[in-house]
Design a protein around this nucleic acid. Sequence first.
DNA 1: AATGAATGAGGCTTCATTCAT
DNA 2: GATGAATGAAGCCTCATTCAT
Lengths: 204, 204, 204, 204
Amino acid sequence: MKAARPTRSKSSQASDKRDVILDAALSCFVQQGFHGTAVPEVAKKAGVATGTLYHYFPSKEAMVNAVYRKWKEAIARQVFTAFPPVAPVREQFRAVWRGMLDFARTHPEAFAFLELHNHRAYLDAESLAMENRLKDFGAGIVKRAQAEGEVKAGSTTLLMELVFGAFNGMMRAHWEGRIALDDAIATLAEAACWDVIAHRPEPP
Amino acid sequence: MKAARPTRSKSSQASDKRDVILDAALSCFVQQGFHGTAVPEVAKKAGVATGTLYHYFPSKEAMVNAVYRKWKEAIARQVFTAFPPVAPVREQFRAVWRGMLDFARTHPEAFAFLELHNHRAYLDAESLAMENRLKDFGAGIVKRAQAEGEVKAGSTTLLMELVFGAFNGMMRAHWEGRIALDDAIATLAEAACWDVIAHRPEPP
Amino acid sequence: MKAARPTRSKSSQASDKRDVILDAALSCFVQQGFHGTAVPEVAKKAGVATGTLYHYFPSKEAMVNAVYRKWKEAIARQVFTAFPPVAPVREQFRAVWRGMLDFARTHPEAFAFLELHNHRAYLDAESLAMENRLKDFGAGIVKRAQAEGEVKAGSTTLLMELVFGAFNGMMRAHWEGRIALDDAIATLAEAACWDVIAHRPEPP
Amino acid sequence: MKAARPTRSKSSQASDKRDVILDAALSCFVQQGFHGTAVPEVAKKAGVATGTLYHYFPSKEAMVNAVYRKWKEAIARQVFTAFPPVAPVREQFRAVWRGMLDFARTHPEAFAFLELHNHRAYLDAESLAMENRLKDFGAGIVKRAQAEGEVKAGSTTLLMELVFGAFNGMMRAHWEGRIALDDAIATLAEAACWDVIAHRPEPP
DNA sequence: AATGAATGAGGCTTCATTCAT
DNA sequence: GATGAATGAAGCCTCATTCAT
């Protein structure tokens, strides 16, 4: 229900404009990359004057970092919220997977920007620090599952990176139109990615 | 005296310089991205004058496409060469995997450039066409394996993208220093990625 | 409660704010120059909003001219007030000198702004006209003194400019920390500058 | 004789262009000040493209410092060259004075730029260091003359600043058209400025 | 073929000024 | 009157590309 914000105060209007700019920036950056995007382009897409961007962000770099953090926070929140702390490992895995998938389907540009681009040249320390939260979180799950014997032994980080990589590979294929991400595909993918880490003793 | 390289013809010297430029360009592009790299930077790293670049490439875009094709061709050749056409599927999978891994270890910048960057904004049609060869090749293997019942049923493309994605995830983690790619890790990763596509009937 | 200033009428409050702005502008202009100062900087230093400046001055140029005239008027008033119309020339000289020195010591930023900056690019006709009053006044004194034989013959303007120049040189050295302007120095300087214009017949 | 450079090597042509730019910059800066001058203006006046300026100077600030140093060096050289080390103080004073006057007459814009503008906002340490050489040199002369009893006792720096200030005042008046700097005027000015520092015992 | 100075359009950012609140 | 967000022209500087040597 959008009716929840019927009267907008001055400050919420300002926040709105900031968000409009962030959305325009996301859209430009995901299509053309950070260095491939001109600041006036972002302004034009946001429907404001170029100078206005500089009331909200001190520089283009600050802007891209704000975009990055906004959405990294959003995906983290979504995954954490859906996570069942006391469920069996298999179910936890599914929950994280669905959380990420829901996010990626709801905010395809945000996901593509976060995961399909190389940000190392312009992200600041705080943004880089953020990047590791989901991964640490994921690594924690894998580690506990390893202790319970349900997941392969060996480098926890490797297993987690393989799963995230597979997920990103799927999303990239979707983003670039090579696959359609319907429920059958999503289910198959989830199962296949579980198999990446699942401990399956050879049958006798 | 230029006579120091007697065994090389004039044309092969020219090729050398072209390669020097391509190497410098690869190095710059992988660190700073295409739009983040200035042409004189590439020239400086290559040890030639700026104008010289334009004797070998008509534009910066042509240059980045040449870099892309050179290395996409190289990785394709390496994988095709190592591929055993008549071996069992499991062995074929391992061969492709090892081929890619060997390439990525031997040419880390090239691999990072090819797979960890988003090129859509500047690659031309021919380069884009090239991108699909490895994937089509991989998809062919998967498809045949599906027919033989050794691989999960369902979207061939999805399975292949999951495997490539997992591989890229591993390489990105390595590139960014989160894992060390020793043999134990590589073996575990290969096995885990095979499990992505392996058909494992539930035990009764 | 705004009632804290009961003795001041509305209009004098407005004048106060105008003066606050003029003071802030003086401070900025003297440190960074006219073109080196941004209008919002002046507003910030004055403690008002940027838009408020434009209630008091139609433009940045009008503002700098107002600053100039305010202080040029002030120094003129101070010098004229202290001037003894019927005293001997030597005493008149001393009075003018002390008047200028008092002003420069009391309002160092104002003096530095008036005399140590080059205003030709933005002063309007009225401001430029003002600039010559002190000098005409000074020239008048010198001219009468020449008639009385106490001052060197020759270009009145030159003599007056030399004295003003010497005074400014002293103040610049003080402003830039090369000399301390104590009473001994001031007395020596006054005597030395009188010698610039004093008619001293060679001893026989 | 300009014929001394009949064939210009590549490097001397480059120096020529650098000098053309420095001259254009001097001309702009002296008329409109540093912050009041736009870089493309300088380029236009120099007859080159804007980008060309940046082959010779890394920034506008570097450019203004180069202008400053070029001319500060030139005036120093001129004064030092004309200085007679073993002559009587009165003659040394005259030599310094004439050296400065010759320079100011030959290069009026350079002199106006050096002495009639306030550079503190953009000069770098090296330029500021340079500024004190002429003054230290002048102070040395005054100090020796004080020791010989020909010059007033008291703050050496003050006396020197008064003389320089008077000289600058004269030049400013000339620059702004209030006096014509013919030989009669110059001679009178020189004598008057000597009187600033001359020790004249009161007649009994 | 090789050079690198030169170009000028375009990039990021600033800033004098306006105007809705 | 007072505010400060908004504007967009203009500022400094970069950079892909050209061309005389």
